[in-house]
C-alpha cells in the first residue's frame, strides 16, 4: 500500500477583487466582486514509503497548497487523500502526530525562547516520552551540530542556524513523513549543503518519506530521484530527473575556453548559445553527432585551453517545460 495517495484533489480560493484607486476602494465596500482561483486542479499522485520526491513549479503553481492539504491545514473542495490510511483534514490531530512540516520562510520555534526550550515545548505538545525525546534530540543535534545553539534565543540565530533547528524541531516526534516547503530558501552555500546532506541521510538511513518543494534546482539534482512538476494547479510531469531531461531536450552543452579571445568557432553540428570573454557556450544534439567525434574535430581545428560537456542546467529544462505549458 502506498504511503501517501492523492486522487483528483481540487482546491479553489475565492479572492476579493479590488478595483484600483480611491473609487475602487469605495466600490469594494459596497459591493464585493470575487474571482475564483483554482489552486489545485485534479492533482493525483502516490508516494511509496521512503521515497524522496521533488515537487517543483513556478510561484503560485500550487506547491504550498498541496503541502497544506497533505498536512490537514486546508480542506480541499473535492478529491481523496490519505496518508497512512488517514484523511489529513478529517483526522487532523492523528495525522499531525505522524507528519513533520517545515515552511522554510517561517519558523516554528518560539522567537523569544532559547532553542532548547522550544524543543522541550514541542516534546510536550507532541507528547513524546522523555526517553524517546532525548534520543531523537541528541541524534539530530549530532547530525546538524546543534548543541552549541541550545542556549541561543531563536531571534539571534542566523538563517542557516535557524533552518537546522527548524528541521530538528519538525523531527523530534519521529514522523514517518516530512514535508519541506522551500527549506533552502535564502541560505548560504555552506548551509544549503548541510541541509541537503541532512535530508539525504534522513531519507536513506531512517526511511522517512520526504516531499521537497523548492525553487533551487541544485536541491533537486542533489536529492531527488523523482520529480513532479506542477503548474496552474495541475501535475505536468511526474518522472525521474533523467527522464524529464530526456523528454524536454536531448541537447548537451559544449563549453570551450579559447586561448585567443578574438576567435570564433563554426561547425555545422553545433549552435551558439552565449559567450563571455574567452569562454564560449555551444550546444549540440548527441543523436546527430557523436560527442567524441565532435570534440576531436573542434580541438584539431582551434586553439583551445579547456573544454567540457554538460547537460543543460536543470533551470533551463524546467523553464522550457513551463514555456510548453504557457506558464508565464
Amino acid at each position: 500500500m502506498s504511503h501517501i495517495r492523492l486522487e483528483n484533489i481540487v482546491k479553489t480560493f475565492r479572492i476579493a477583487r479590488r478595483r484600483p484607486g480611491l473609487w475602487g476602494a469605495f466600490h469594494g465596500v459596497l459591493r464585493r466582486e470575487y474571482r475564483t482561483i483554482k489552486a489545485l486542479d485534479r492533482v493525483s499522485f502516490e508516494l511509496e514509503r521512503g521515497e524522496l520526491v521533488g515537487y517543483i513549479g513556478p510561484n503560485g503553481a500550487g506547491k504550498s497548497t498541496t503541502v497544506k492539504v497533505l498536512s490537514g491545514i486546508l480542506v480541499p473542495d473535492s478529491g481523496r487523500c490519505e496518508i497512512d490510511g488517514r484523511v489529513p483534514w478529517r483526522d487532523r490531530i492523528a495525522n499531525a502526530a505522524n507528519i513533520g512540516v517545515v515552511f522554510g520562510q517561517r519558523t516554528q520555534l518560539w522567537w523569544d525562547l532559547p532553542v532548547i526550550e522550544s524543543f522541550d515545548l514541542l516534546r510536550d505538545i507532541y507528547r513524546v516520552g522523555s526517553g524517546d525525546y532525548a534520543r531523537a534530540r541528541d541524534e539530530l543535534a549530532a547530525l546538524m551540530d546543534l548543541e552549541p545553539l541550545y542556549d541561543v534565543p531563536v531571534r539571534q540565530l542566523s538563517l542557516g542556524q535557524r533552518m537546522r533547528c527548524d528541521l530538528a524541531a519538525a523531527l523530534l516526534h519521529a514522523p514517518s513523513v516530512l514535508f519541506l516547503d522551500e527549506p533552502t530558501i535564502g541560505l548560504d552555500a555552506v548551509s544549503k549543503l548541510a541541509v541537503r546532506g541532512f535530508i539525504k541521510r534522513l531519507n536513506r538511513e531512517r526511511g522517512v518519506t520526504v516531499v521537497l518543494t523548492t525553487h533551487d534546482m541544485d536541491d533537486i539534482e542533489a536529492l531527488c530521484d523523482r520529480v513532479m512538476v506542477i503548474g496552474h494547479g495541475r501535475i505536468l510531469s511526474d518522472s525521474t530527473l533523467d527522464d524529464l531531461r530526456a523528454r524536454v531536450t536531448r541537447e548537451r552543452r559544449l563549453i570551450i575556453d579559447l586561448l585567443d579571445e578574438d576567435q570564433t568557432i563554426a561547425d555545422p553540428d553545433v549552435s551558439f548559445v552565449s559567450r563571455s570573454g574567452n569562454r564560449i557556450h555551444l550546444q549540440f544534439d548527441p543523436d546527430r553527432v557523436q560527442t567524441a567525434a565532435l570534440i576531436s574535430r573542434i580541438t584539431a581545428k582551434y586553439a583551445i585551453k579547456d573544454l567540457f560537456v554538460e547537460n543543460p542546467p536543470i533551470e533551463e529544462i524546467i523553464s522550457r517545460l513551463y514555456d510548453e505549458h504557457e506558464l508565464r
Binding site: 490537514g72 491545514i73 515552511f103
Partner: peptide
Amino acid sequence: RSGTVAYELVRPVN
C-alpha cells in the same frame, strides 16, 4: 499576520 499560524494547525492538539 505572518502566516505562521499554519504551524498551529499541524500540531496534534485541539
